[in-house]
Computed example of a mutant assay.
Amino acid sequence: MKAFVTGAALVAALGLAAPGLADVKAGYDAWGQGDYAKAVKEWQPLAEAGDPDAQYNMGQAYRAGQGVDKDEATAVEWFRKAAEQGLPKAEDTYGRSLFQAGKRAEAMPWIQKSAARGEPRAQYILGTALFNGEFVSKDWVRAYALMTRASAAGLQPASNSLSQMNSYIPVEQRQKGLAMAAELEKSDKAAALAAAEVDNKATKATGKATVVKPTAKPKPVEVAQAEAPAKVAAPSPEPKAAPKPAPAKPAPKAGVPAPQPGGAWRVQMGAFSEDGRAQALWKSLSAKVGGLSGYQSFYVKGGPVTRLQAGPLASSADAEKLCRAIKAAGTDCIPKKM
């Protein structure tokens, strides 16, 4: 009896799927008893034959290093095969795996599918992308709605980003986002039920719960490493060839306030998770905004982001004036007192 309880506890802590095929059930039972090698032996031929549940289970085995040598690349490949057959849990896992590996453009279609089913981590990632306009068209209303849903699910990075968004998104758009979030809550519940039905299709056939987790818990996707959405006021333009450095900075053109050494004001044009994007934006704006190259650029580190600022300026009025010129070039800008 004690061994049975231990196996059940392992099953309750795993993330595998157990469909109604006899051999897959045998693997499921072996895994619950701690015989991982036997479980893998049962699942592998079915996975190779195209069974999505067995493929997902093989992915979890390789990710946890149970019954096989730990191999993240092989795990992700099994998740891909199961995801392409429409297994919701595999779609979620595969999308986040790609995103964590830095393959964000490739991950985004899977992230969108997961977000549409109400998966909070996917909603956070997609909300970030929609705010920044990265890999998807910028949509602050939908970004706010998705971040609201992810925050309501208890995802702390989403709560942090939502608070930051309040400083950037106009009240009217935030209100529309809240209304959209209320509608998403209804659709999320329906989608989650449908996904659970697919993931747990063998419950009746096996007489067991179909969702278990590996004893060595896979490393979770660190969505907190995604770019903090409310820290980015505008997407970065395509980098342009850098001009040859001038011996001295040109004076600002008429209509743009002159830099003021020792001034207490700067303007901020965005914040980025990569220094290169901040540098690319500065080069682009220096070519577009007359007189901007006469200012000093600042790359201010703050946690995981780099803020692009320019200055110094003598007053808030001068900072506002320079921001108007920058906004006219298509980039958001806010005055900052140092």
Rank of each mutant, 00 (worst) to 15 (best):
G291K: 04
A105E: 08
S163N: 14
R121D: 12
G20V: 04
Q268M: 15
A202F: 13
Y62G: 00
F99W: 14
P88N: 12
K186S: 09
E197W: 07
D69M: 13
Q309W: 08
K113M: 04
E42G: 05
A264L: 04
A105S: 12
E222M: 14
E106F: 15
P312R: 11
M58K: 06
P45F: 15
A150P: 09
K38F: 11
K244I: 08
L184Q: 11
G255D: 03
R63C: 00
D71Y: 02
D318E: 08
V11F: 05
L130H: 06
Q225R: 05
Q225N: 14
A258G: 08
L313D: 03
P52C: 07
G59K: 00
Q112H: 04
I169Y: 12
L193Y: 08
R80I: 02
E320L: 10
E172S: 09
K138P: 11
K213D: 10
S159E: 12
L130R: 04
R266K: 12
D51N: 14
Q55T: 04
W78F: 06
L178N: 02
P245I: 01
S137F: 05
R63E: 01
A83N: 04
A241G: 11
F79E: 02
E48W: 11
W265N: 00
E185N: 06
A73G: 04
D332G: 12
V232S: 10
Q44T: 12
A153W: 11
Y62Q: 00
V76P: 01
A264Y: 01
A319Y: 07
A54C: 07
Q123T: 14
A153S: 15
S167P: 01
Q60Y: 00
A319I: 04
A152P: 07
G262F: 01
T74F: 00
A116F: 01
G207M: 08
A150C: 12
R117W: 14
Y295T: 04
Q309C: 11
N57M: 00
A329K: 14
E48K: 15
A122S: 06
A143M: 06
A107P: 01
K336N: 10
G207P: 15
V305G: 14
F131M: 15
A152E: 08
A18I: 03
A325P: 05
E227C: 15
E119C: 10
A278T: 13
A202D: 11
G50A: 06
F79N: 00
V76Q: 00
A17Y: 01
Q268S: 13
A13E: 13
A325W: 05
I169V: 15
Y36R: 03
D23P: 08
A287V: 13
A241E: 13
